[in-house]
Design a protein around this nucleic acid. Structure first.
Length: 310
DNA sequence: TTGGAAGCCACGCCACGTAC
DNA sequence: GTACGTGGCGTGGCTTCCAA
């Protein structure tokens, strides 16, 4: 049974139109005013005056000082402003009258003007939508988009965008966020979903990471192993072996200065041979987006360091 | 598949010129 | 004198091309 409570007639017109009874109760959960005698819903879609959360004890009342939907860095207004969609339909999906349509058109126009009131806001709106688009194309989780958005906002605040393209800085922020969140994507992969060249992304990334003090550690080649192995349909055993090769050879100092994707690819190639699940250098190279020569060079160094004789 | 040669590119370092 | 921009040079990693 739903929780109901007695309500007072605030507007002076509170009686049931069906049975003319004034015995009306308010359903707080549904926001409805119901006639207790005949059961007719007298009013619906009442505005709930209470908070959007419920505090069950004193401590929660103290801590939850804010109500409403959670804010997000992935929207330029942090998702706080109202969005008026373009459907021209009411809450039930029915078309609205022409008078209402023109009213909604005016409201929508002013809403957009208010939401993006200056060049900075428009810049942020465009950049964040770019980050969202690229992140979707790369299939990275929401946390990466949030981090990328924070990095872009910082770059904008520090005036690092001046003289650079919005797309370039947005792409660099996403690249940095991927690395920061431990889901690295190579510059090649990033440039495939971006409108900016790889060279430009790399240059802008170096600049903003230096200026913002992002303190990026070199990417661990082991982070690429599960994804590459999955694309090559290799077993868990090969993954484990490849990780082992990377760990051991990196201890010897072989990794220093080398491309992590090439290094991971070579380890996977070596592991596939050792586990009798052989893949050609070309297959591995295609997945890792490096050349066969790179795999050969890294592979030779790795098997030498491991003391394996091919 | 493997190896070698040539070339490209990014980066660090240094010297030099210019503006303040 | 100092800060900054620019260009040359060397180095190392990587790619492309070709041959075996």
């Amino acid at each position: 049974m739903r929780e109901t409570d007695e309500t007072e007639d605030q507007e002076g017109v509170r009686e049931c139109p069906e049975c003319e009874s004034d015995n009306l109760v308010k359903d707080s959960d549904r926001g409805e005013l119901i006639c207790e005698d005949c059961g007719l819903v007298v009013e619906e879609e009442q505005i709930d005056p209470g908070p959007e959360w419920r505090a069950f004890n004193h401590q929660e009342r103290q801590e939850k000082s804010r109500v409403g939907a959670p804010t997000t860095q992935t929207m330029h207004d942090k998702g706080l402003t109202t969005t008026i969609d373009w459907k021209d339909k009411d809450a039930y999906g029915r078309s609205i009258s022409s008078k209402k349509r023109s009213q909604m058109h005016r409201l929508r126009k002013w809403q957009e003007r208010i939401r993006t009131k200056d060049a900075g806001e428009r810049n942020l709106q465009f950049a964040l939508s770019e980050i969202d688009r690229m992140a979707s194309a790369l299939g990275v989780p929401r946390s990466v988009r949030e981090v990328a958005s924070v990095i872009y906002r910082r770059a904008l605040k520090e005036d690092l965008i001046r003289g650079r393209s919005i797309e370039g800085v947005a792409t660099s922020a996403l690249y940095a966020a991927c690395r920061k969140e431990g889901i690295p994507r190579s510059l090649e992969e990033i440039s495939e979903v971006s409108r900016v060249e790889r060279k430009e992304i790399g240059r802008t990334y170096r600049y903003i990471s230096q200026e913002l003090g992002l303190e990026m550690r070199p990417v661990d080649p082991k982070k690429y192993v599960p994804r590459f192995c999955s694309e090559l349909e290799l077993s868990e055993e090969v993954q484990t072996k490849a990780n082992e090769i990377i760990e051991k050879t990196a201890e010897e100092g072989l990794l220093s200065g080398k491309s992590p994707t090439g290094y991971a690819a070579a380890a996977i190639y070596a592991a596939s041979l050792l586990c009798n699940e052989k893949k050609t250098q070309r297959e591995v190279a295609d997945v890792a987006q490096v050349t066969e020569v790179t795999i050969r060079n890294r592979y030779q160094e790795q098997i030498e360091a491991m003391g394996i004789h091919g």
